[in-house]
Design a protein around this nucleic acid. Structure first.
Length: 590
RNA sequence: GAGCCCGUAGCUCAGCCGGCUAGAGCACUUGACUUUUAAUCAAGGGGUCCUGGGUUCGAGUCCCAGCGGGCUCACCA
């Protein structure tokens, strides 16, 4: 491996750290009692104010004035209150006078403040001994001031020349160690919290433990007060391939994944609170049923048979409803061997839920409640900005039948048309069709071409043609339709749900229709699953089922425009130089 | 799968119509300074210009092929 100059320097530093007698990769736990985001100006200020109260019996308002007086007397702007106008109203003389009045033991303002600070530290730190203990990456140093970045943010450290070590030799050792710190190294520190002359909350380091050496230089991203970013690490390829670097230097990326995590846990909490059961079903399936998509194929050696990575888990979850569970849901990966782009990754996360004795009307209300809850938990609001539009997840959502929607946006009523008439409509609307398309597919084409883009606010499209939906129950009142809805947000499908088909004879016929479509050349037509039919024959209660694309919902709630941004590790073509790949493809897959 | 665009230092990017030893800022090294808040000063090191071929006296630059990526479209969720 060819090392760059900077990598060589870091390896030399590693050796020097060892030579100084420090372990660059120690095994011991480093106990944390604070996070960087817990050490805030506000907390420090209130600890100070409380201490002033305790020591001198002054009120909180006066103590704040005293703090400002102190800073003013040093010729600096008081950092601990945002309201600078307030400051102007408090002349130093007055507050000093006040201090004299309030100070039961007259002392200088400096001493007064120092006393309060000491007391505040005792109150501030968790062990009441005046220190906090934190750890993270060392992110650069200017003079005695260094930045420490942990999982929650960044905190400034003050590393004084002679603060580390007790004896002269120790002091020298630590001085050398501090010089050898590279950006990205992990260190743990212990010291007291204070505000610097310019007002930045900082930790005065009294103990330092080296925790882990960084041998590769991180990209240096700099931000100024106005939020301008310099030398940003932005190349999508590098960011996705080295997500660990992306997460280290781009805090806004971390935020996306925090939202993703909050989304999933909120949704899980919502379902669990209803008493529905989270389950896991096979990812390796002998028959890839439940959706229209091309699967990944693999092979089991012992069974000597092909297996498919699931394109859907629907048929398994319904078997569990047959088995007697009232509500089951699964959050998991699906795999589809199809195109990749900014809204498609070969593996994606789907939430599927099935509830017995319900229908799709009930499900629409449940989804409204669920999304309202999730959006609020993730973003703090039901109104969420996406691509400059404000999308409101508070229900109820607009409901349009498929035919109504098409009529609304094309002016054509297709509700009574046969296949030939639909073909004419497609021609009229300049929509390309081919002979393999059945009636359902033709309607779907018209819909996705002419309607989808208009559905910005959450909108239910309900009652789909039977041909495109082999697993849904026939409509209770309209011939040729099924009880199905899809939820569209910002022109994209987010959720899909049915009153589930529980008539095994009807289900068999629908599968057979699919087989005929397959013979016509429809590659995505569904396979017939005998075991699933057997399960239905034992009897399944009326059930409503729902699927939600978690990645797409995350995109909407985190205001991201590509699925790659909401996946830690989006699929990418491997780079040849980094890995050796097995030469014989057959050996791997078989 | 198709079209358009991109690939230059660890990072961000200049590099014209082909022309001297390929540049800048940050990062790095050395020295000075114990100091602030993207950026202290001075000096220095660092390049398979994605890969391979071609045109040419001469290619980072032009042409061809490949690899990787981005955007748009098609299919899918």
């Amino acid at each position: 491996m060819q090392l760059s100059e900077q990598e060589i320097v870091r390896r030399e530093n590693l050796q020097k750290i060892k030579d100084l007698g420090f372990n660059p990769f120690p095994a011991e736990e480093f106990k944390l009692d604070f996070r960087s985001d817990e050490i805030t100006t506000e907390q420090y200020q209130s600890a100070l104010a409380r201490s002033l109260e305790l020591i001198r019996g002054v009120g909180p308002e006066q103590s704040v004035k005293l703090m400002h007086a102190l800073f003013k007397s040093r010729g600096k702007t008081a950092p601990l209150l945002a309201d600078e106008a307030f400051l102007e109203e408090v002349p130093i003389s007055e507050t000093v006078e006040f201090a004299d009045e309030a100070g039961h033991n007259p002392v200088s303002l400096e001493d007064f403040f120092a006393e309060a600070r000491e007391s505040a530290l005792g109150e501030y730190s968790k062990d009441k001994k005046g220190a906090v203990q934190i750890a993270g990456r060392f992110m650069g140093q200017r003079g005695p001031f260094a930045k420490l970045q942990d999982s929650y943010g960044t905190i400034q450290l003050y590393i004084g020349k002679n603060d580390l070590g007790d004896t002269e030799e120790e002091k020298e050792r630590y001085k050398q160690l501090v010089k050898l710190l590279d950006i990205g190294d992990f260190i743990g520190v212990r010291g007291e919290v204070f505000a610097t002359g310019t007002g930045e909350i900082s930790v005065h380091v009294r103990e330092l433990v080296f925790l882990g050496k960084s041998l590769r230089p991180l990209p240096i991203v700099k931000r100024d007060k106005e939020g301008n970013v310099y030398d940003a690490f932005t190349d999508p390829e590098q960011r996705y391939r080295q997500r660990y670097v992306d997460l280290t230097v781009n805090p806004q990326v971390r935020e996306i994944f925090l939202k993703r995590s909050r989304l999933i846990s909120a949704m899980r909490r919502f379902f669990d609170n209803k008493g529905w059961l989270e389950v896991e079903t096979p990812i390796l399936q002998p028959i890839h049923g439940g959706a229209a998509a091309r699967p990944f194929r693999t092979h089991h050696n012992t069974l000597d048979m092909p297996l498919y990575l699931r394109i859907a888990n629907e048929l398994y979850l319904k078997r569990l409803i047959v088995g007697g569970f009232e509500g089951v849901y699964e959050i998991g990966k699906m795999f589809r061997n199809e195109g990749m782009d900014r809204t498609h990754n070969p593996e994606f996360t789907s939430m599927e839920i099935y509830i017995a004795y319900k229908d799709y009307h009930w499900m629409m209300e449940m989804v409204e409640q669920c999304l309202e809850y999730v959006a609020t938990e993730v973003t703090g609001n039901t109104k969420v900005e996406y691509e400059g539009k404000v999308i409101d997840y508070a229900g109820p959502y607009k409901r349009l039948t498929m035919f109504e929607a098409i009529e609304e946006y094309t002016g054509i009523d297709i509700s009574n048309m046969d296949e030939a008439a639909l073909r004419d409509v497609c021609k009229q609307l300049h929509i390309e069709v081919d002979p393999t398309m059945g009636k359902g597919k033709l309607i779907d084409e018209i819909f996705s071409e002419k309607v989808e883009d208009h559905l910005i606010q959450p909108t239910y499209i309900i009652d789909y043609p039977i041909e495109m939906t082999p697993l849904a129950k026939k409509h209770r009142s309209v011939d040729g339709l099924v009880e199905r809805f899809e939820l569209f947000v910002n022109g994209k499908e987010i959720a899909n749900a049915y009153s589930e088909l529980n008539d095994p004879i009807d289900q068999r016929e629908r599968f057979e229709d699919q087989l005929r479509l397959a013979e016509r050349g429809d590659e995505e037509a569904m396979a017939l699953d005998e075991d699933f039919l057997r399960a239905l024959e034992y009897g399944m209660p009326p059930t409503s089922g729902l699927g939600i694309g978690i990645d797409r919902l995350t995109m909407l709630l985190a205001n991201q425009h590509s699925i790659q941004e909401v996946l830690f590790f989006p699929q990418m073509r491997p780079k040849a130089e980094l890995h050796e790949y097995p030469k014989n493809k057959e050996e791997v897959s078989e």
